[in-house]
Amino acid sequence: MRWFRDAGHLGRVALLLLLGVGLFVVARHFAVPRGFGQYGHYRGPVLKEIRAHPVSYAGREVCEGCHSDVAEKLAGGRHKTVGCESCHGAQAAHANSDDPGAHKPPLPNALALCARCHQQNHSKPKNFPQVDAMEHSGGEKCTSCHNPHQPKPGA
């Protein structure tokens, strides 16, 4: 009995610690965000939040739905692997709008655009068609001899 009395102050400390632990457990129960652990050690709802991010590039298939003429042409030439938005930029605002004509995309500046892919560079794959843009075109617009959608001259 005396031992218990003389160790009483240790009991108080233990009680204090237990109280702290208890408070922590209760607080934690309420503070852990909803959906945490739904799929793994993270907030489950975050997947939907990330998916809600808006799209800027509509995707080639969407363009082809309306511009089938261009699409057909493109598919028949060596630019077939090049997506529309690779040259025309992000056009989701145009393609997914109710009135695409109201968000008409500006036409690309051909010289800068073509040179970006075709300007000679020793690090490019050897079989990739490359030219020294200035020398090859003589400063003329690339589009006066090449159709961007079917680049083989005279096609």
């Binding site: 031992w3 009395r5 003389d6 160790a7 009483g8 102050h9 108080r12 400390v13």
Partner: peptide
């Protein structure tokens, strides 16, 4: 002190 002033030799 946490309300305990027991400083007996045993304590």
């Amino acid at each position: 002190t946490l309300g305990s002033s027991n400083v007996s030799e045993r304590a």
